[in-house]
Each structure stands twice: as C-alpha cells, then as structure tokens.
Computed example of a mutant assay.
Amino acid sequence: MTHFLYISDVFCPWCYGFAPVMHRLAAEHPEWPVRVLCGSLVEEPTTLQTMAAKSPTLRAFFERLAATTGQAVGEPFLRRLEPGEEDAPLFSPEMATVLAAVNKLKPGCALETMEAFQTAFYRDGINVLYPPVQPGVAGVDPDALTHVLHDPAIMAEAERESEEALELLGDFVVYPTLWLVDGEDRLLLSRGYSRYEAVASRL
C-alpha cells in the first residue's frame, strides 16, 4: 500500500516546525496512511538548561525557527532556557517508548500523537518526560498508559523502530525526513525542514 513514511523526533525543533506541513499533506491525501518512526536525536540524556549553557544563542535560534516555519515557540518553553528557571530533560529513547505505548492504546494516531507531544514541549513548555503529564498530552487513560509502559514488548518495539529509522536514514541522519513509499520504491519528499510548496511539488 502506498503510504507516507515519516521519521521525526519529539525533541527535534525542525520537526516541530515541519508539523503543519506534514499535517496538511496527511489531510490532503487521506488515501496515503502515515507511518511514523521515532528518531534518535538526543541519544544521551540531557536537559534544556545544559543545552542553553553550551549555546548562548539558543533562544535566538528558536526565535528564527518560529519566524522561518510559522510555528510559534512558546514563552513557557523559552523561559526554561533562562538560568535558574525550572529545567526539562530530553532523551529520545525514553520518549520513543512513551510514543510506542500511546500508539498501542490509540492505533492509527501516531502522527497526531507525535505532534501533540511536540506542541506540548515547544509551545507550552511542558516537561513531556514527566509521567503524570503524559496521559493528558496523549489523550489516554493514565492507568492504561502506566500498564502498557510496564510491558517489556513496548520498549523492544520502540528500539526496533528507532533502529529501523537509523537504517533508513543511512549516512544522512537528518530530521525530519519524509518519503512516499510505494512497494519497494521510496520517493524522497523532504530531508530536513521544507516548506509545503516544495514538498507538494515532488508528489
């Protein structure tokens, strides 16, 4: 079956910027399901405060991101970059496990779930790795999510999907990456952030 294959990461700012493009493509082509694979942008645990300390121009980067993509980066997120503000952790493998658990509870909603967590993080400044907030962001029952997260198969599934994503990306690990897949054929639509018009022209 022809489908979109989308590799994204909750902690990838350009993926957050690309979300409206991906959302529009999915809405305009309901005949093509969207398969989402989680990337591994943040392979080792870190925090926003750590990143900000290493990159003094980080706030300016996010302001440029918003201007380029039209996706507002919220003041609650930007405040977390300031010294002394409440910190937030980033770790892609842990986030991938959460997404795999939500996808088990809400099959067929992987794109919406990815976008919900990206929005919660970059617009609302929510610590999306804090377990009590995850059910609300995902729109699932808290007890059901806790139960699924304790299933060893979920972590294994998340690891398999992340490995598949890296294998597909090969030597060019760039997020987001989007293909249109038809059988054994893959048409590259975007590697990194692209505007809607550029992606649509390749279809």
Rank of each mutant, 00 (worst) to 15 (best):
T46Y: 00
A116E: 08
P131E: 09
W32G: 11
L187H: 06
F77I: 07
M51T: 13
L105D: 04
F77Q: 01
A101T: 06
P45R: 08
V174K: 00
D143A: 15
F4Q: 10
L145M: 04
M22K: 05
A27T: 09
L81P: 10
V36P: 07
A26L: 09
E28C: 01
L169Y: 08
A26I: 04
A96K: 00
E43W: 06
L58Q: 11
T46M: 01
A72N: 13
P56I: 09
G84Y: 14
F61W: 13
I126V: 14
A19L: 11
P30E: 14
S190Q: 04
D141W: 09
E75L: 12
V137A: 00
E82C: 14
A26Y: 01
A100P: 06
P93G: 05
A66I: 09
T57Y: 14
I7E: 09
C109F: 15
V21D: 08
V173N: 00
V102T: 10
T113H: 14
A60I: 00
T119H: 14
P135S: 03
V174Q: 01
L188N: 05
Y175M: 03
P152E: 02
P132H: 10
D87F: 11
L37K: 04
P20L: 10
P132Q: 09
H29R: 12
Y6V: 07
S92W: 02
P135G: 05
Y16P: 06
T47K: 02
L129Q: 08
V148K: 13
P176H: 07
L145Q: 08
E28V: 02
E94S: 15
E163G: 02
Y196T: 02
E157I: 04
D171N: 12
L111K: 12
T119F: 13
P131I: 11
V36N: 02
F62P: 00
E164S: 06
F61I: 06
H3S: 08
W32E: 09
A153H: 04
M1H: 12
K54R: 15
A100W: 04
M114L: 15
P176K: 06
L81M: 12
V73T: 06
P56Y: 00
M51F: 13
R123S: 10
A120H: 00
Y196H: 00
P33Y: 03
A100Q: 10
V42C: 08
Q118W: 06
L145S: 05
V42K: 02
P107K: 11
T146A: 14
W179L: 02
D185P: 05
E112T: 14
P132A: 05
E157W: 01
E44W: 12
R191S: 06
V102L: 13
G84K: 12
S162V: 11
G70M: 02
F62W: 05
L78Q: 10
F172R: 15
P107G: 10
S162T: 10
E184N: 06
L99E: 04
L169V: 05
L58R: 02
